[in-house]
Design a protein around this nucleic acid. Structure first.
Lengths: 189, 189
DNA sequence: AATTATATACAGAAAAAACCGTACGTACTT
DNA sequence: AAGTACGTACGGTTTTTTCTGTATATAATT
């Protein structure tokens, strides 16, 4: 059973709408690499963006002309990034998905999810290495050794400072405070 | 002529420092995918991070155990992202590079460079499609057609709003205003 | 002017990633 | 309980990306 959104429309009209959609979908798909997402998954997202109803994997595969397997993995990527939500609809045994419409939130979520993790991992590595070098410095050694360690420690210190700053930027996104500084509605000038 | 930073140090000391560096370098390399950078280029960046002197392509190739060609392409990626600067040193015919130490700026630059471009391209596509749909709506048509167009236009409107917001977030980075809201120095609590 | 040193364009090789079909486990239906 | 519908793990194939060696262009040195 295939529902057709364009039922009853003239071919030329449908074509015009499809063309308008296609441009947007492809632009979205092309720029989604910033989210670390493959182009085809980006196109899937773009497709779903124009859907008024939740889609199931079979519909996606049909529309994308790709395998159901690929839809499954693609959609998981999108769900993991909170870009797409799984929705429940009684009567249907199939999993249904729809795009998250609050893109501001989507962006903030992505930022928190990905960049926070990077910050944490890098900070951990930096602190461990700092501790090792501190210890090495304490255990005596030549002048040359201390100069070398000092250089590395200074670089590490700067890096840590940066990540702590970045962490606070991420806080801004997570807390929603960003919307105080940059309101969703364009200030009417 | 190969200069050795570790000249005159005990092997165990050199090893300890290398271990500390390696952890940081690998962490950086691993997380650099957020910048759309390949892991090996990320490792190159990490390597250069601990260098006190500008490096040339031959030194990089030797340290990374990779071809000079790869170093050339890798370094270009990093230069394009303003993560690495080309420096001039009289007497040397080789191109020399060193990492940009101001990571706050590096982050802001990246954000402006990459996200701004995405915003512009997406906005362009959205506005074109909006114009087409507006025109199509004006040219009459059935009730069903107008409902369909209206749905798409509403989605496009929301998307445009979002990108305008994101554009202002990017402005925050570009103008340096972000540092007013999130100062580089951690506020002493 | 000839020689040498340097970076990179280019094409092929190697590695990685995306994609698909099959097989299987789970949960719903009968 | 048997059968059916569904999503996905998995292995193999195709496509894309990364990496390398050679060739070439450019600029410095002799």
């Amino acid at each position: 059973m295939m529902t057709n959104d364009f039922a009853g429309l003239e071919a030329a009209q449908e074509q015009a709408i499809q063309k308008a959609r296609k441009r947007v979908i492809e632009s979205i798909g092309k720029n989604m690499d910033l989210y670390g997402i493959t182009q085809s998954t980006g196109l899937l997202y773009g497709l779903m963006f124009f859907q008024d109803k939740p889609m199931n994997l079979d519909e996606m595969g049909q529309a994308m002309e790709m395998s159901k397997t690929s839809m499954s993995t693609g959609i998981r990527t999108l769900v993991d990034l909170n870009m797409v939500n799984k929705v429940w609809e009684k009567g249907s045994r199939k999993d249904l998905y729809e795009v998250e419409r609050d893109w501001h939130q989507t962006f903030a979520d992505f930022f928190v999810l990905k960049w926070r993790k990077a910050v944490e991992l890098n900070l951990m590595a930096l602190r461990r290495s700092k501790a090792e070098l501190d210890k090495l410095a304490e255990s005596g050694g030549s002048e040359a050794l201390h100069a070398l360690i000092g250089g590395d420690l200074e670089k590490i210190r700067q890096a840590i400072d940066y990540y702590l700053w970045l962490d606070r930027v991420i806080d801004l996104m997570e807390s929603g405070e960003i919307f105080k500084h940059v309101p969703k509605e364009e200030p009417s000038s």
